[in-house]
Design a protein around this nucleic acid. Sequence first.
DNA 1: AGATAGTTTAC
DNA 2: TAAACTATC
Length: 497
Amino acid sequence: MFHYFIPNIITALVDVNFSIYYAMSEKVAIVWFRNDLRILDNPALFHAYNNYDKVILLYIYDDQLGGSWKMGGASKWWLYYALFHLNKTLEHKSCRLILRKGDSLEQLKQILSSTKAQEIFFNGMYEPYNIKLEQEIEILCDSLEVTATRFQGNLLLEPWEAKTTTGKNFSVFTPYWNACKKLINTKDPLPEPKFKPYYPEVADCNLDDLNLLPAINWADGLKATWEPSEKKALELLGEFIDNQLSGYSELRSRPDMVGTSSLSPYLHFGQISVRYLYNSLRFLSYQKPALSTQVEKYLSEIGWREFSHHLLFFYPNLPEQNFRENFDKFQWDNDTELLRAWQRGMTGYPIVDAGMRQLRSIGWMHNRVRMIVASFLTKNLLISWQEGAKWFWDNLVDADLANNSASWQWVAGSGADAAPYFRIFNPVTQGEKFDPKGEYVRRWVPELKSLQNNVIHQPWKNFLPNKFNNSINYPQPIVKLDTSRARALAIYKQIKR
DNA sequence: AGATAGTTTAC
DNA sequence: TAAACTATC
């Protein structure tokens, strides 16, 4: 499966020179890239070049890592282009990314022994399987007398840093985030490293060999929407600051408008540093105090990301198990037909279907609509949050185990500092409030295009004959809102006891 | 980060 | 009579 990088004549000569250097036992280090696919403010990358002249830049695609939470289809699509763009950037620095496929530990073992690297640099991750892998790598490195150096580059704080005054872990967001804000170090983000040209002689494979792109092409919508590069992330941040930030706290809830930064996938894959993001906005708020309320609102969303990682770190079962144990006796209905209708965007509730189709089409859904579709699944359809989490996992380009698990549990009511169970969103009311002209619905549910604004969120009320009206193809509501709401509340009463 | 039904208040 | 408020889920 692997092939050796075949250099052109010039790099072949360079390679010969390097092997001579190697004979002189010049030190080599490895940067093990993970979800930190950036060159700016990347501690592992920066410190590797600060300490070594020969740095091997490595990414291992381990298609089994994560078990039932191994990378989903949309994430793999994103990863393909993220690696593509990162490699392009590195080539401009006369370096290149070594790609490997297979078991992470096994691959690292092979590379460590074939390159005689003395040190491996990486940035820490927090999923249970990634924590386990880091521990195994530490043991491996000990046995090979290689130094393993872990950096903190993916969160503002390590999950264990913020503690309550009694030394316990937080389980409520607001006091957690207030404590974090006092602890967050506002030192400047690291610049890009001083790259040193090096084309190591290491067996690797082509990007296409990783089999990241779908065999059946469903990714046109993703391709038309996203550019998964570090450069684009920085551009999006700039555009967000210029155009959206001043109205963020209102417009963030409007799926029919551009009101959010759309940085979630870039943050997940580490194509933008959360510290860079945080410091940029803090500095802006200091420069322009009028924006401080909006900045605080945006940064609190970054705070939820920190909080989710904090929860996942201390409750590694968060992706599977209810955080609140009393939810264990909750009787989910888990009807397959209803689940399928939800997945396909055929529930008969326009805002729900628009969201689910947006998800399938571009691998992303507006945050407000995520809450609406999640409430609908768990409360109106009585389908477990785990089913929703699985579907999102496969379809989101920003699928992130901590955020996904914590957020689904938040909506279901089983999570830490969760929405009360009885907070049941009404998709009609929500649609009329946050998509008042139905533009979001018309974009993603074209059958409803010709409906008037006053019935776009309740198409069953459209009795006006219209020969251009395609809404006949649109399903009737799969459940009634009033009775399904009452049923959910009745079940909630039972689990309270 | 809600919805709803019932009640009070402001014209 | 509708907006505003409130208790409840």
